[in-house]
Design a binder for these strands. Structure first.
Lengths: 201, 201
DNA sequence: ATACATAAACGACAAACTGTTGGTTGTTTG
DNA sequence: CAAACAACCAACAGTTTGTCGTTTATGTAT
């Protein structure tokens, strides 16, 4: 799906890893991860089993590497946004992320929404919470949040978990909304106590 | 940790299952789940390996059963709350849940916060989102959210994911806040409809 | 185009794990 | 006490896991 070719890597390596990763995603669609063995992956990829060990220590290691690449891709998607430091830009970043996910829906549905691959959601959670954290530390919290006595780290936990959880649910429900619409909903929801202060008591 | 004795079960069954479950939680603290075999569990529990298969089909099956029991316990904790249909009661339910978790911190830290046991977080997410959903359908959404054009199901995803994610982060950080304090933070943060319904708007 | 480097394939291995069997010992309960 | 049944035990075939050394095939640089 995505191209991870680094400077001057032997094309055989690219090919083998690509085949292995595709086979793994394939199998993940068909069966529980507990039933996936190196044997099956190699077989499906039409690669010798021993060759697998030339590239990955074991299956969890393979998943780690794939998660690394996923984070890179997400980061790249986020970086496509113009670096204007504003709320408006946050919305754009989010939109870019959602569109990137939608474009690679097969992959993300399998690794994020399928029930048994926490590594990926873990990593994405970290990515998002770092982002939320940076934003808060840069701009500080909303006045009404500070007034209300909301703890900064709790706000970070809350916000990033809400984000990733919603995206996962969106994937699990076959993406019933467009990225644009969902991003818009986020801007409405994310206001949290903010819009409470605007209209509420 | 918790007592799941049903009416008139052979005490040997109770004992064996208890030992197996404890051994499993123990091992889960020490190593990645991929490295845990029926062999190890039985050995640690000082139970014959064959006996394991008398009670569980395999390890995932064992985890499913344990997750069932977890949900029962959580439900029980929630049910301790007086059934007054009000925002106030929602806060109480949440507080009871947090206190139940804090009381069984070892168990919940291992199964919820450890990186590789999605069954449990899955089930808890379902529990919470059902609860959130019920509230919304009972009281409807906050007026200002309706006005803002927020989609009901998205609000449910957002709210329940925020809840469970925050609780998991709280566990992962060694519970730096008391249940009471965290519950209070929730009441401050949740601009979401499900809790704000009656007095908000 | 040839030669060198190296990736992949192949056959094989011990060790561990998985599920399942039949038979035996031990405990609970009526 | 006796019937019921849970747990133990030895053993099994089949699978999976990592890891050899060796050979074949492919890519790269001269």
């Amino acid at each position: 799906m995505m191209d991870h070719s680094k400077p001057r890597t032997d094309p055989r390596i690219i090919r083998t890893r690509q085949l292995l990763k595709e086979a793994f995603i394939d199998l993940l669609q068909e069966m529980e991860i507990e039933k996936i063995s190196v044997n099956r992956i190699a077989e499906r990829a039409t690669i010798n089993r021993v060759t697998f060990y030339l590239h990955y220590r074991d299956i969890p290691d393979m998943m780690d590497k794939m998660a690394d690449e996923m984070v890179e891709d997400m980061q790249r998607a986020l970086d496509e946004s113009p670096s204007v430091d504003s709320d408006r830009n946050d919305s754009l970043m989010l939109l870019n992320l959602l569109e990137h996910i939608a474009d690679n829906a097969k992959f993300y549905t399998v690794v994020l929404a399928s029930r048994r691959t926490p590594v990926f959601t873990e990593r994405m959670l970290k990515l998002l919470s770092d982002s939320v954290k940076r934003r808060i530390e840069q701009f500080g919290m909303n006045d009404s949040m500070v007034d209300a006595g909301i703890q900064k780290d709790i706000a970070i936990w809350y916000g990033s978990a809400a984000l990733i959880g919603t995206i996962v649910a969106w994937l699990r429900n076959d993406m019933p909304y467009t990225p644009v619409y969902l991003a818009k909903q986020f801007t409405l929801l994310r206001a949290d106590p903010q819009w409470r202060s605007v209209e509420g008591g």
